[in-house]
């Protein structure tokens, strides 16, 4: 009989892992808490650095996970994994149980809840939005203010919820800088006369063609970069946003009026991942992400044999890294099942 592997989480990592597991001949069950798989990809419009439509990646993932050998079970949140000899008993929120010979945990990330940064007034000031909200606007094809008008000046705040001791996140979410640059360019594509200002602490463009994208934003799209994190937002009498930052390179505090402010929400361990991990005895790091057995050569291995990690449940990753990580998890599963 074929070995059965359960993959928890139907985002990029889970779908890729499921597809690769099936290729090697395993029976796969893929659990997704939402009504359809795809994870955050479903909400994104285009991807950095080449601004390829996210739907293309989704299409690839749908292709590798469709057909026989993979059962996709949606609308189910897995809450617990219990090992009994060589069998894993997996239970969902409603109390249904499933068994598996091995498990891949791909519970992914949650976007930082931007309302926690009270000084930015997300959920209070009308035109403070997040990077995810902006993607939604891109998908609809219209970037508008709450009053229906088109913004002329747009600010982008990097590092919202990342590198922030007060928010409990010391780490860099790594993808927000390049997302900001991508979105800045896209804003200019949609609104050619808009002025865009990125407020950053450091520009962390460490990925293939990220730095080039940054340069393109400056050179071809006239995006302005101001080194200094926004420390306070308020609303003016004309319903515009007053932002305070320091221009640390000019060495002076700076005040600016913008029509819209986009918060680059960072990545946090998902709530489902937290619950599942804590009830199943999976170790987590200080950053709350799952802590792999070894950062160099065991980044997919958990502290429990037979349970492996794939993707952003271990750390912030881009899609390329997530797919590679998911494939590597499959290698670990193959080795484990061979032994057992």
């Amino acid at each position: 009989m074929n070995k059965h592997v359960v993959v928890i989480g139907g985002g990029v990592a889970g779908m890729e892992a499921a597809g690769q597991l099936r290729k090697t001949g395993f029976e796969v069950s893929l659990f997704e808490k939402e009504e359809k798989p795809g994870g955050h990809l479903n909400k994104w419009y285009k991807l950095f650095p080449d601004r390829r439509p996210s739907s293309e990646v989704k299409e690839y993932l749908d292709n590798i996970t469709s057909g026989e050998g993979i059962k996709i079970i949606t609308g189910k949140t897995i809450e617990k994994i219990v090992q009994n000899k060589n069998q894993f008993h997996i239970s969902d929120k409603e109390g249904s149980e499933y068994t598996a010979d091995a498990v891949i945990v791909a519970t992914g990330f949650d976007l930082f809840k931007s309302a926690r940064k009270e000084e930015y007034g997300y959920g209070i000031y009308d035109n403070v939005i997040t990077s995810a909200d902006l993607e939604e606007m891109f998908r609809k094809g219209s970037i508008t203010l709450v009053n229906g008008r088109t913004p002329e000046t747009i600010g982008i705040v990097h590092c919202v919820g990342s590198r922030d001791e007060k928010m409990g996140n010391l780490y860099c979410s790594k993808l927000c800088c390049v997302t900001a640059v991508k979105q800045a360019i896209e804003i200019r594509e949609h609104l050619p006369s808009a002025k865009v200002f990125c407020f950053y602490m450091d520009m962390r463009m460490g990925g293939a063609y990220y730095e080039e994208l940054y340069r393109e934003a400056q050179e071809e799209w006239g995006v302005n970069f101001i080194r200094g994190k926004v420390s306070e937002v308020s609303e003016s009498i004309n319903n515009r946003l007053v932002i305070k930052s320091e221009d640390t390179l000019a060495g002076k505090p700076l005040k600016m009026l913008v029509d819209m402010l986009v918060l680059m929400a960072g990545m946090e361990m998902s709530e489902e991942g937290l619950k599942l991990g804590d009830s199943s005895g999976l170790k987590r790091g200080d950053n709350r992400f799952f802590s792999p057995a070894d950062h160099h050569f065991g980044s997919n291995k958990s502290n429990l044999k037979g349970i492996y990690y794939a993707g952003t449940c271990t750390m912030p990753m881009n899609i390329t890294e997530t797919i590679s990580h998911a494939r590597a998890a499959v290698m670990d599963v193959i080795e484990y099942l061979k032994e057992s």
């Binding site: 309302a115 009270e118 959920g123 609303e235």
Partner: peptide, 10 residues
């Protein structure tokens, strides 16, 4: 300005 947001913080 959305008063609900402030109420949530309060």
């Amino acid at each position: 300005m959305k008063i609900e947001g402030k109420k949530a913080i309060w």
